[in-house]
Simulated scan of single mutants.
Amino acid sequence: MPGPMSEQGRQDFLAAIHVGTLSVASIDERPPLAVPVFYHYEPGGDLTFFTNTHGRQSRKVGLIAKHGVLSLSVQHEELPYKYVTVEGTVTGIEQPPTAERMLAITRRYMPEEFAQSFVQQELAHPGGTVLMYTVRPDRWHSADMSEEVA
C-alpha cells in the first residue's frame, strides 16, 4: 500500500511543477467541476491560480464564488506514483491581478517569451475578466509509492 507523504514531502511535491486538477462542488444535478489549471505554491504558503472568463459566463468562477472552497490535485503519473490533494478555502480574489503575479505562475510552465505573450493576451482579451485566486490549504491528502517500487 502506498503511504502518505511527510508534511515537508507533500509541500515540496505541490511546489514542484505539475498541472493541477481543480475541483469545485456543483450547485445543481451536475457532478463536481474538474478542470486543469496552472498554479503557484511555495511550501508553507498559500496556493494561487488565475482564470479568464474570455467574455463568457464561467461555470468555474460561479461555483468558486458560491462555495468559497475547492480541491486541487497534482500527481506524478509514472512509477513511483505519487499524488497530493489539498482542500482549501479561497481567501482572496484579485480582479485583475498584476501582470507580475500572473507571470509568477506562467513562468513555471512556459519559456519567458511565451509566458510574457500569454499574460499580455489574457489581460488584453476584450470583454474578459481575469481573476487571481488565493487559496489557504486546509487539509492534505497524499500517497507515495516510492518504497513499494524500490
Rank of each mutant, 00 (worst) to 15 (best):
H18N: 15
V19P: 05
E77Y: 10
T134E: 13
L47D: 07
V135D: 11
Y39Q: 12
Y133F: 14
V119Q: 02
R108A: 12
E100Q: 10
H67F: 06
G68S: 02
P80S: 12
V149T: 12
W140V: 08
V90I: 09
F49E: 02
P96N: 11
A16K: 15
V149P: 06
I105V: 13
Y41Q: 11
V61L: 03
G55A: 13
M145P: 01
Y39G: 13
P137A: 14
T48Y: 12
R108N: 14
H54N: 11
T129W: 05
P43C: 09
W140C: 08
L22K: 01
V74G: 14
E94H: 13
R107Q: 12
R30H: 04
K66R: 03
H125Y: 11
V119Y: 02
H125S: 08
F50T: 04
A115P: 02
A150C: 05
V24H: 05
Q8S: 10
L14F: 13
I105C: 09
Q95G: 09
E78T: 13
P43L: 09
A16S: 15
D12N: 15
T106N: 07
E77T: 12
S142F: 08
S26R: 04
P80K: 11
R136E: 14
G20W: 08
Q57H: 00
Q116C: 04
S6N: 07
Q57L: 00
I64T: 04
L63A: 01
Q120P: 04
H141T: 08
A150D: 07
K66Y: 01
G68Y: 00
G68M: 01
T91Q: 08
Q75P: 08
T106K: 03
L131M: 13
P4Q: 04
R10I: 06
S146A: 13
R59Q: 00
A15F: 14
T91V: 14
V61K: 00
Q75L: 15
